[in-house]
Design a protein around this nucleic acid. Structure first.
Lengths: 332, 332
DNA sequence: TCCTTTTCTGTAAGCGCTTACACGCGCTTG
DNA sequence: CAAGCGCGTGTAAGCGCTTACAGAAAAGGA
C-alpha cells in the first residue's frame, strides 16, 4: 500500500514493464538493467501490490473454505491439512464459518469473489448458490456430502465402517442400541453412519437426536436417554464429541462404561484417547482429507483436470475400552 | 470473474458510474434509473468484483491471522472468536500457519499484502519484519507477547495465576515440583507462567523442557521425568496438552494421579475436563481474546484509535481432581 | 420569462499491476 | 554491404471498480 512499481521504475531509470519483467523473470532483461532494478527494489523495499497483481493476472491465488464452526477438532484438522497444502501451492486460505450467521448465502458469495476455488463442508452452503457457482464454473470441492454434478466430492467411508462397528458391538453381546446424534441432513456423513449401523441392527437400534453434534448436546440427550426406562445397552454416537457427552452423562448417573452401558464415537479426536474409559471409535483421516481437497482444488483451478472426482477414503475401527470388555486391553 | 459493471451499465442504458452509485447508495439516483439498474443487475446476476472494489477503495476488507499451527484447541478457539467478530465487521479472515514452513518471512509479508491488518501470535513473525510492518503503519495486534511499540498486545494474565496455582499445590503438601514444557521464548505466555510458579516455589521447582507443547512431546518428556530418581510430587505443565501427555505417562508407569504425582495444565481445553483424573488448570478466555483482537484491529484500521492498547485479561483457576485430594469433588 | 438552485448523470482519471506489440540496435550472414 | 534476426526495452491497453468534476436537465423563484 505504499511504494509502487512506478517509483521503482523511475529510480532505476527504466519503464515499469522492465521492472515487472525483472521481478517475475518473464521476458529477457539485460543483466545490467536487472541489477539497477533490483537495487531500486531493495532501496525502496518494494513489494508488488497483491491487488494489482491479482487484477492483472485475473486470479486471486487464494482458496476458500466454508465450515459450520471450528468448535471441535474435526474441522480444525481438515483445515490444517488444507492450509498446509494450499500454501505449498502458493495459495492463501480465506476462511468462513457459517455458525450463527444470519446471511450465509451472501457470505459464501462474498467468499467466492475472493478466491479461485473453495472447499465446502456438507451442506453449509445453500443449494441454489452451489448450483449457481458450479454453473459459473467456480471450482468447488465438497467434504461430507453426496456427489453432485459440477464439483468434486471427498469423504471418508462411513457405511461399511458403521456396519463393522455394529457387528463388533453385537459380538459383545449387546442387544438394545441407541444412535445418539441422529442425522439432520440426508446424505451427509452422519446419515451414512446411521444407515450403516441400522442395516445391521435393524429394529434393535433407535435414533436419538441431539441439538448439535457437541459435547453439551450429547450430554443432555444422553442424560435423558439413560434415565429413561428400557435403557439401551450400547450407545453408538454420531461422533466423538457427542460420545464424550454420553460418557459424562453415564458418570453422572453412576453408570459404569462399558459395564452398564457401552459407548462409541467417531473420528478419533484427541480427547477420545484421553477419556476414561478411552473411546472406541472410527478413525478417519481428517488432515489428509484437507490436503487432498487442496490438491483437487488446485487441479480444477489450473485446469489440469476438468472431470469430477468423487473419492472415498478408508477408515479404521479403533477399539478401546468403552465398547465392552476385551480380553486384553490395547497397550498405551 | 464474469459479468462486469460495464455490461450492467450497457443493459440498463446508463453509465457505469450510475450503476456504482445505485449499488453503493452513494450519490443521488432517480428512482426510475435505479429500477432499470437493479433490473439489469438481477438479470445478469451481477456481483461486483472484489478485486476491482478493493483496488479502487484501497482496502482489502480482510484481516490476517498468523499462528504456529492449529493442532490444539487453543489457537482454534482464538481463531473462532476472531473470525466471528471480523466477519461481523465485514472482514474476511485469511489464515497463515507457520509450522513447518521454510520461509515464514515471505509468507507473512505476502499475507500482509492481502489484508488491512493482522493478528499475530507470540513470536511467530520475525522481529525485523514486525518492525518493518509497524514502521509502515500496518495495523497489528499481538497475542501472547510482551508489549512492543507500534502495535496492540493482548494477553491473559499469567504471573499471578501461576502464583496462585503454585500456592494451591503447596497447600496440598507437595514439596518437589517440576515445570514441564519449559519456556522457549522470553516474554511469551509460557515464560510468564514459569516465572510465576518459580517466584513462589523457588529452588523447589525444576524446569523440564519439551520439544513442543503437544501431547506427544509432553508424554515423552514426562516418561523420562517420572522414571528418573527423585521424581517430583507435582508436575506443573505449560499447557493442557502437555499435561495430558503427562497423565498418559503416569498411567503407563502405573503411577496414580494425584496420589503418587499431581499434574496441572493451563488453558482448560475440552479434553482437560474429560481426562481422568480431570485436570486442574487455569482457564483463559481464548475465544474472547480472538474477539477482542478483531475489534482492536478494526479500531486501528479505521483509524478510530491511534494509540496502542495493551490489555491483560483475567483468568480463573479451575480446580479438578488432578492436583491433589480435595474434601469434596466438584460436581459434574 | 429568465435566472438560480437542485438533482441527476456521464466523462474520465485513477487504483497497481501484466503483457501484447512495436521499435531500435548491434550482429550475423549471404 | 544490405537484409535479417534476436535481444532489450518502452508504450499503451487492459483488468473492474470508485469518485471528483462537470455538464445537462428539471425545478423553483422573482
Amino acid at each position: 500500500m505504499d511504494v509502487t512499481i512506478y517509483e521503482v521504475a523511475q529510480r532505476a531509470g527504466v519503464s515499469i514493464a522492465t521492472v515487472s519483467r525483472t521481478l517475475r523473470g518473464t521476458g529477457p532483461v539485460a543483466s545490467k538493467t536487472r541489477e539497477k532494478v533490483l537495487k531500486a527494489v531493495e532501496e525502496l523495499n518494494f513489494t508488488p501490490s497483491r491487488l494489482g497483481v491479482s487484477l492483472a493476472e485475473g486470479r486471486h491465488a487464494a482458496n476458500g473454505i466454508v465450515f459450520p464452526n471450528l468448535a471441535g477438532p474435526y474441522y480444525t484438522q481438515v483445515l490444517l491439512g488444507y492450509e498446509e497444502v494450499a500454501s505449498e501451492l502458493g495459495r492463501s486460505v480465506v476462511i468462513l464459518s457459517t455458525k450463527g450467521r444470519t446471511n450465509v448465502r451472501d457470505a459464501v458469495k462474498d467468499l467466492a469473489g475472493r478466491v479461485d476455488g473453495m472447499l465446502v463442508f456438507g451442506h453449509t452452503a445453500p443449494d441454489d448458490l452451489v448450483r449457481e457457482l458450479t454453473a459459473a464454473g467456480t471450482p468447488l470441492v465438497f467434504i461430507s456430502r453426496e456427489p453432485l454434478p459440477g464439483a468434486d466430492t471427498l469423504r471418508s467411508e462411513n457405511t461399511a465402517s458403521a456396519q463393522l462397528l455394529a457387528a463388533h458391538l453385537q459380538e459383545h453381546g449387546h442387544e438394545r442400541f441407541a444412535f445418539l446424534g441422529a442425522p439432520m441432513t440426508v446424505g451427509d456423513d452422519v446419515d451414512e453412519r446411521w444407515q450403516g449401523v441400522r442395516s445391521v441392527l435393524g429394529a434393535a437400534i433407535e435414533a436419538v437426536p441431539t441439538e448439535e453434534y457437541t459435547v453439551e448436546c450429547g450430554h443432555a440427550a444422553a442424560l435423558k436417554l439413560m434415565r429413561g426406562r428400557n435403557r439401551p445397552q450400547a450407545v453408538v454416537c454420531s461422533d466423538d464429541e457427542v460420545a464424550l457427552g454420553a460418557l459424562l452423562a453415564a458418570e453422572e448417573l453412576g453408570l459404569s462404561v462399558p459395564g452398564d452401558i457401552a459407548v462409541t464415537g467417531w473420528d478419533d479426536i484427541m480427547a477420545a484417547r484421553h477419556a476414561r474409559p478411552a473411546l472406541t471409535t472410527i478413525r478417519q483421516p481428517m488432515r489428509e482429507m484437507g490436503a487432498l481437497a487442496a490438491r483437487a482444488l488446485d487441479e480444477l483451478i489450473t485446469g489440469a483436470r476438468s472431470t469430477q472426482n468423487h473419492l472415498t477414503l478408508t477408515t479404521e475401527l479403533v477399539i478401546r475400552a468403552s465398547c465392552g470388555n476385551h480380553p486384553q486391553e490395547e497397550p498405551r
